[in-house]
């Protein structure tokens, strides 16, 4: 049994819990191959958890997580190690090694996962840095880089092993408008020219909607909606409309559930 070839990743009936709290409840998500898919939803709705399920850092309580024809929760540790080589992740924080320079940060996965000679590793590191516009910065240390540059180095490292699937965890957070524009362009370019399947987890609506071919909106442990950005913008579902239009109040209430305000301030009468 394997997934439909049109999908690079397929979650089937996935339930994930932290303690007794359900983060995902019987969720089905299909990520089309070779496209940019955005996973959107309010902060804390489990978007990063979803990436960890796809990367098999977390196991679902039940359900299947198919990546490239393999159901990850059933794999052995060594098979999982191999499966992960085809996935790249751009972490929210960038997560560069602070005591390694830019070159060695990008070279790291090549040194750990391949038998390539130093000569070929140098070629590949310079190619990846050229693609993100930072070949000239190869000798700099991470603390000498701006936030936007750090994220681009992290992106060069994420594509070092030529992954089939590239996952971006909140790539736009904390970026200035120019850095944001550069990232949007790079995500699209790498997706299209390298034939990568991209998954962008974000709550930055404008950027994600501008780049994604397909969107999922998640919340309350479920998929609230899916479709092209245009389809979701025009959705009749009030929850999706609230999220897409950024309304402070709606089906997702502005106030976290709380006891009566008057009673809280003045005491019960």
């Amino acid at each position: 049994m394997s997934v439909d070839n049109a999908y690079a990743v397929e979650l089937k009936g996935v339930t994930f819990k932290r303690g007794s709290r359900s983060i995902f409840n019987n969720v089905d998500i299909r990520i089309p191959r070779g496209k940019v898919t955005g996973i959107m939803g309010p902060s804390g709705c489990g978007k990063t958890t979803l990436l960890r399920l796809i990367g098999a850092q977390l196991r679902p309580a039940s359900g299947e997580v198919w990546v490239a024809g393999q159901n990850l929760p059933t794999l052995s540790r060594s098979d999982l190690f191999d499966a992960r080589k085809q996935m790249g992740v751009l972490f929210q924080s960038g997560a560069l090694f602070t005591d390694l320079d830019v070159f060695e940060n990008v070279a790291f996965p090549l040194r750990v996962h391949t038998q390539l000679s130093d000569e070929m590793i140098r070629d590949i590191v310079l190619m990846k840095l050229q693609a993100v516009g930072l070949r000239g910065a190869f000798e700099l240390m991470p603390d000498e880089l701006s936030g936007g540059m750090k994220r681009r180095v992290a992106l060069a490292r994420a594509i070092a092993l030529d992954p089939q699937i590239l996952m971006y965890d909140e790539p736009f957070v904390g970026q200035d408008p120019i850095a944001m524009g550069v990232l949007v362009r790079l995500i699209r370019l790498l997706n299209d020219a390298l034939g990568i399947t991209s998954i962008v987890v974000s709550h930055d609506l404008a950027e994600t909607a501008s780049i994604a071919d397909y969107l999922y909106v998640v919340g309350d442990g479920q998929v609230l909606g899916q479709g092209t950005p245009q389809e979701l913008m025009n959705s009749d579902n009030p929850r999706i409309r609230q999220f897409m239009k950024g309304d402070p109040d709606g089906p997702v209430p502005f106030h976290f559930p709380a006891p009566d305000y008057r009673a809280d301030l003045l005491g019960k009468r």
Partner: peptide, 11 residues
């Protein structure tokens, strides 16, 4: 070919 193929050509 991945980027390894390009590196081979360069080498």
């Amino acid at each position: 070919s991945s980027s390894v193929g390009l590196s081979l050509l360069l080498a």
